[in-house]
Design a protein around this nucleic acid. Sequence first.
DNA 1: GCATACGATATGCAGACGCTTATCATATGC
DNA 2: GCATATGATAAGCGTCTGCATATCGTATGC
Lengths: 143, 143
Amino acid sequence: MSIMTGRRDLAAMIAPLQRALIAAEQPVLSAHGLSMWGYVVLDALDGQAVRTQAALAEFIGADKSRIIAVLDDLEAAGLLERTRDPADRRARFVAITDEGRRKHHAAQADIQRNEDRVLAQLPPADREAFLRALAVLSAQVSG
Amino acid sequence: MSIMTGRRDLAAMIAPLQRALIAAEQPVLSAHGLSMWGYVVLDALDGQAVRTQAALAEFIGADKSRIIAVLDDLEAAGLLERTRDPADRRARFVAITDEGRRKHHAAQADIQRNEDRVLAQLPPADREAFLRALAVLSAQVSG
DNA sequence: GCATACGATATGCAGACGCTTATCATATGC
DNA sequence: GCATATGATAAGCGTCTGCATATCGTATGC
């Protein structure tokens, strides 16, 4: 017996929401000269400790062989730096630059402005619970 | 200024959750002999009024030329019926059959059992608010 | 009655994806 | 010192998707 009967599956409710959010994000990111993956990488790196590329790829749910071009572009744009790990010269640390942080924050602010319009449909109490629950669930499945 | 400051974007939090839910759904659907799109179609048709194929495609966010094979399979499996609209013989009504409904309910029950384990991480109040909010937001972007 | 619009269907193309394999430099166990 | 393992990278493959186009039967305006 379901926790809340009569509901549809989570995935079926989340999918259209996700589609709409991404569709709204796309033009905003383009205006900032960022690709979706580029933004995801900056988002993962901002405020986090530097990490190796394989760990980064796994964290954002991307294939490690597919994010290399993304990292190349971001590095060429001066938004991140790759440095060799002195303790293991095979590995490379990936760190966001100050300029990358600025661009990330600017893009994120624009995106959240859009999202706030969506969230405004909810009563404040539900809105906060929703964001809280999302943070918990998102962290849960990522760990 | 954001409604809740310090949060990450919705899309960035939803994406991994969505990935995890879909990954968990896949083997369940396979066990029921359903494809992901097949399940989405049954889910959209169950309990709804019959609709035309173009409307169905738009509703589930699929390309109208891409769901035809899905409908063919479901029809061949006896899970739905396509009938000509007598008022417009170009259009075809798509309706779920009793067997389709049974299969949908069985698959949905299995899926929700999985999802309940995920939702169990949340305090009951947040869980209910989360589901309520999700239903609102999902309906909002679909409309 | 005819031109035009429209629904369902088929098909082809380009882009993105997950996955696999290969290569090269480096690390590590023995 | 050598065999083996690992990180980053490149390249190829099959699949899925969105998009565009074409066909065919049917509706509809005039």
